[in-house]
Amino acid sequence: MADIANRGDILNLVNTFYTRAFADSLIGPIFTEVVHMDLVRHMPIMADFWQTVLFKAGLYHRNALKIHFDIHALEPLTLDHFNRWLQLWTNTVDALFSGEKAEMAKVQAHLIAGSLHRRVTGRPASQYSTISMRPQEGQTSRENG
């Protein structure tokens, strides 16, 4: 299998992924019933996003965090939602591509999903934000570790 090499590959990836996501029983209704996503209009935006992530293309200029906050206000996005998104994304990448960029697409998706989930649920974006040398005020060192 070839690696992700260009925008055509990215369009194939996002089209395949969103076709699967729309049909999924857990996350599909968020796209189809909550935000009523226009898939045809959304594909170039997502291609810009992933082309920027994978190739530093500088094409994506939207605020992905705000978009997910807006969705979360309509329908709370749970860890199960993010895990399913990540599972579908990873399976789609693995079904279509193999190589350095394909691996990067999976790693970046994992980091992005984790960060978005933490942010929409009111926690800091960094997965390391809870690491501390000293207890926070009102917390014992045992609770902190």
Rank of each mutant, 00 (worst) to 15 (best):
R119F: 02
H68C: 02
T121C: 03
A125H: 10
P29I: 06
N6F: 00
I10K: 04
H61P: 06
P44T: 04
S126F: 11
A21N: 03
V35R: 02
L65G: 00
D3L: 00
R142N: 02
V93C: 03
F22M: 04
L59F: 10
G28P: 03
H36E: 15
H36T: 11
F69L: 15
S141Y: 14
Q87H: 14
V93F: 04
N12P: 00
Y60S: 07
L86T: 09
W89I: 04
M133R: 12
K66H: 12
K101F: 00
N15D: 14
E103Q: 14
N144H: 13
K101N: 10
S132D: 12
D3P: 01
R41D: 04
F31K: 09
G138H: 03
L111M: 07
L26S: 01
H36R: 09
N83S: 12
M104W: 00
A21I: 01
G99R: 08
T90A: 10
V120M: 07
P44I: 05
T92I: 01
V34K: 08
K56A: 13
L54P: 09
L96D: 08
A105W: 01
G145T: 14
T78M: 08
A125N: 06
Q51S: 15
L11P: 00
T16E: 14
G8F: 06
N15L: 04
G8D: 14
A23N: 05
Q87C: 08
Y60V: 05
V34I: 15
A73T: 08
G122I: 01
F17Y: 02
I131A: 07
M104D: 09
L74W: 03
F17W: 01
A109I: 10
H72T: 02
S132Q: 15
E100H: 12
S115E: 12
T19E: 13
A113D: 01
A2T: 14
R119E: 03
L26C: 05
H42W: 08
A109G: 09
D9K: 07
T121H: 06
D94Q: 13
Q127H: 10
S129K: 02
S98K: 07
L88K: 07
D38R: 11
S98V: 06
L26H: 09
G114C: 11
W50I: 11
V14M: 07
H110K: 15
R134M: 12
Q136F: 15
E75P: 01
W50T: 10
F55M: 12
H61M: 08
L59M: 13
L74Q: 09
F55W: 08
A5C: 01
M37E: 14
I45K: 15
T52P: 05
L26G: 02
H68S: 04
H117V: 00
L54R: 06
F22H: 04
E143M: 10
Q136L: 15
G145H: 14
R123M: 11
I71W: 02
P29K: 03
T130Y: 10
R123V: 01
R41A: 15
W85D: 03
